[in-house]
Amino acid sequence: MLRLLEIEFHKLRYSKASKILIITYFVLLTCIALFASIKFDIGPIKFHLAELGIFNFPYVWHFNTFVAGLLKFFLLLVIVSMVSNEYSNKTIKQNLIDGLSKKEFILSKFYTVIAFSLISTVFVFIVSLILGLIYSSYKEPSIIFSDLEYLIAFFIKLVGFFSFGLFLGVLIKRSAFAVATMIVLFFVEFISYAIVSGYNRGTDVADNIYQFLPFKSLWNLIDEPGSRLSAVQAVAQQVGEDLAYDYAVHWYEIAIVLGWTALFIFLSYRLLKKRDL
């Protein structure tokens, strides 16, 4: 396993484009900290985001994993191009001739996906911990280390999403087309979801079906955190709206995403095995 990771790391580390994307991604992750400095001070309206409680433990785990989840697109480009470039440079053929088996080839990519996800998770953990320690109103260890399941959900979300990208890279062999296909699939799922839920207003039909589809299942892992803020809830209560959402990370949500991940990796392997290069 280490050998395969080392091979993949060697390929990535000399590629300028990948390096820039990876650095951008981590810089942007760090930029979550900049939310803390968002401050409006226009006469009577005083607004300081950090004081709204977004960095309160344990809420910070939810908020930061959600925001960091939006940035995963940068790493997706790295994943997709690291697969499709092997096709366009024909190095995949040479790799196989040099003695890498098809299984090892897919595994080396998958291990890289896991490594990227793990590093991102640890990174988000550290950034959130620091922000929390600075701004949180509660600093008891029992509160700090509660709700950590959001980090697990974040890790699974990244692994699932990147595995999807990996599969499309193997399937389509061109990075631009693979990314475009992913965007098209996203809109197909999103628009059809809107239509289905439009026809079934007031019921859970759309949600019950779409929780099994790739993008919705990834989205479900970490629910939107905005409405959980005490400030937002207070406003909602005043206008008589009940925002009692279920924010928890559920085991079946994780299971669905893991199912997709396994399917994507298996299909990538099958595809590579059956294809003549």
């Binding site: 091979i7 060697h10 000399y14 440079n89 040479q94 790799n95 001739i97 040099d98 890498l100």
Partner: peptide, 29 residues
């Protein structure tokens, strides 16, 4: 294949790596 050396058709290497880096990668494989 670990006891075989082969090149087929055109030479396929990573364009952004130097010769030395490319061969080091093959060593790892």
């Amino acid at each position: 294949l670990k006891k075989v050396g082969a090149i087929i058709e055109r030479p396929n290497f990573y364009p952004y790596m130097s010769a030395y880096q490319n061969l080091k990668l093959v060593c790892k494989i």
